[in-house]
Amino acid sequence: MARINDVGGMTGFGVIDTTDDAEPFHADWEARVFALQRALLVKKIFNLDEFRDAVETMPPQEYLAASYYERWFHAIRTLLERKGVIGEGALDDD
């Protein structure tokens, strides 16, 4: 079954905002998520295919509602919880 990320050829995503958006990160946390992903790959806590799979298997509604780095953070958290590196819900507010 196609996953929600497989959007090639689909219609309905609206117009392309062609603004030349050169800013790589729009908030400090986005940069930190980016760097954590690289660091965890280097440490072989997960590999890139597992990471990509964790993004792509997000529930479609969550995937579409999430920003780019929110998807990354979701994937990191999912993999770390699944592998027992952090406890379930360890990052949530008390």
Binding site: T11, G12, G14, V15, I16, T19, Y68
Partner: peptide, 11 residues
């Protein structure tokens, strides 16, 4: 750029 990652461009 943001648009490269957008569903609008990719689709």
């Amino acid at each position: 750029p943001g648009w490269y990652k957008s569903e609008a461009y990719r689709s």
